[in-house]
Design a protein around this nucleic acid. Structure first.
Length: 501
RNA sequence: GGGCCGCUAGCUCAACUGGCAGAGCAGAUGACUCUUAAUCAUCAGGUUCGAGGUUCGAUUCCUCGGCGGCUCACCA
């Protein structure tokens, strides 16, 4: 009883009272004729065309978010997913008994109401209710009406309350939905086919990240949650689907931050007989298509910046970008040790376990990434950090890879896919050899090394022959952050990962 | 995992240098036939995140722990 406090207890008493009157506080269904938004639009239309003064009865339903009694009349605010409308109740119209029953209704309850639309003296379109039905009794008090729910932790843990009481939350997730939907449209229009590949994988590859491990009982087999979509989508290219994509969740067992959630959504796109140049074109076209579709223009505001997504985006060679910003030409440092020494000279604190690829990555994120506000492609990465990309046509130490940056965030990653099965095998082995220790089992008690079991099944697939292919990955969450102008990934994921209390 | 900051009524926030833990909203009761952060009157509502410690006395100071925010590391 201490936990089920005062208000909840009072509401339970009301609930019992309602049941005592033979009323079911949780009926099975209710047929509404309009959403609140449709109702408001309907009345505006009726007003603007005087000849059709037909004002018919309609029925609405939603959650009560405010109650204002004024003696023998009352005003309730009713919210549904489309918006809000005011309901007007009067003792005259409802009769004493039904009017009195209104006192059993609380803020937070769901009701259905029938009546005709009108404008109040102060000009608000309202429903003059001649009949109403309780559809669900609420037993918990809602957050305060004026400030809403401010406590960030509660907003994430009880997202439904955030959605109910903070008006600005719902549009973010509508935007997210539209963005994903526009991505599908774009790709479908270009005759890509959408596929679904395993989330549970015996060998989770395609990226460098710690995995989540799980176990299948019946098979008595270890499985991993996927960390990328890549290796299965390439199998489909080999299988003869020339244009495939998948939008799906991937899982990375890494740190959590304002830009990282353990599970996040990626779209990966593969197209046979293209290379990374074609993929650049695809990213530009796709993002400006999405922008036009979702917000009607290619300019977006992100923080203080105005970003224009219209193609063509700036293209910079990675080597030049790094050299320009910190004076280091990574081509002068062919191994991790020499590069590390050079970086230490700049006052950087360097993790001694980092291999050359990771050191270059650190140069990017320290010196280059933050300044890439306008859409920019960084081109041609060192081979060390890209085991799945094909070498440059004229440089053995670089691969045909680009990353797309917007608003200082990495949004896209793409390469001309490596399709030489023997070289791929060799690169996997090299990668495993330089694997930093932190990807190895953390505790001595852990079983087999987690890092880089080689995906033999994938290598076998490659041996059957994969056409030259361009591949592209786009982080949907980052894209939503950009479009929603949010600096934290938790604001654009409905239920971000939090510790269990 | 490290650093900094935060946690007080259902919600939003106060409480000076350590001295009786308070307000608004939400709730209950009453008044009110056009309100909309309705208004007015009355009432109720607390393990001050948890456990220790210092003190005559702790929301306040100290230690440990929990959860969160920002940030660094890892990563995308």
């Amino acid at each position: 009883m201490a936990r089920l406090k005062h208000i909840a207890q009072q509401r339970q008493e009301k609930l019992a009272k309602i049941r005592g009157q033979g009323i079911n506080p949780y009926p099975h269904s209710y047929h509404r004729s309009h959403t609140t938004q449709e109702a408001v639009a309907l009345y505006e239309q009726i007003e603007s065309s005087p000849q059709t003064t037909q004002n018919t009865e309609l029925s609405l339903a939603g959650r009560i978010t405010a109650i204002r009694f004024m003696g023998k009349i009352a005003f309730f605010d009713i919210h549904d997913s489309s918006g809000k409308i005011q309901a007007f109740f009067s003792c005259n119209l409802l009769g004493n008994e039904r009017y009195e029953f209104l006192h059993e209704i609380d803020i937070g309850d769901i009701i259905g109401a029938k009546g005709k639309l009108f404008r109040t003296k102060t000009g608000e379109i309202s429903l003059e209710v001649n009949d109403f039905t309780l559809l669900a009794k609420s037993l918990q008090p809602l957050p305060e009406k004026w400030h809403g729910l401010v406590d960030v932790e509660k907003r994430y843990r009880q997202r439904y309350l955030d959605l109910i009481s903070n008006e600005e939350t719902k549009p973010i997730f509508k935007l997210r939905s539209q963005l994903i939907s526009a991505s599908r449209q774009f790709l479908n229009e270009r005759e890509f086919i959408e596929v679904e590949t395993p989330v549970l994988q015996p060998v989770a590859g395609g990226a460098l990240a710690r995995r989540f491990k799980t176990h299948h009982q019946a098979l008595d087999q270890e499985l991993y949650l996927r960390i990328a979509l890549e290796l299965y989508l390439k199998r489909l290219i080999i299988g003869g689907f020339d244009k495939v994509y998948e939008i799906g969740r991937v899982f990375r067992n890494e740190g959590i931050s304002t830009r990282h959630n353990p599970e996040f959504t990626m779209v990966e796109i593969y197209e046979a007989y293209t290379d990374y140049n074609d993929m650049m074109k695809l990213v530009e076209d796709m993002l400006s298509y999405i922008a036009k579709k979702v917000i009607g223009k290619t300019e977006i505001k992100f923080g203080e910046e105005l970003i224009n997504l219209a193609p063509p985006w700036q293209r910079i060679y990675l080597r030049e970008a790094i050299k320009e910003r910190c004076g280091i030409d990574f081509e002068d440092y062919p191994d991790a040790d020499s590069l590390r020494i050079r970086m230490k000279q700049l006052g950087l604190q360097i993790d001694p376990n980092k291999d050359r690829g990771r050191l270059v990555d650190e140069l990017i994120s320290t010196f280059v990434e933050p300044s890439l506000t306008q859409p920019t492609f960084l081109l041609d990465y060192p081979i060390d950090m890209s085991p799945l990309a094909k070498k440059k046509r004229d440089n053995e130490r670089l691969v045909e890879r680009f990353e797309g940056f917007i608003g200082g965030m990495e949004i896209a990653n793409a390469f001309t896919e490596l399709n030489d099965p023997l070289e791929q095998r060799e690169r996997f082995h090299q990668q495993r050899a330089t694997q930093p220790t932190e990807l190895m089992p953390a505790k001595p008690g852990d079983e087999e090394p987690e890092a880089e079991a080689i995906d033999e099944d994938f290598l076998q697939a490659l041996e059957y022959g994969m056409p030259p292919t361009g591949g592209l990955g786009i982080g949907i969450d980052r894209l939503v952050m950009l479009f929603a102008d949010k600096q934290s990934i938790r604001e654009i994921i409905l239920f971000p990962q939090l510790k269990v209390k």
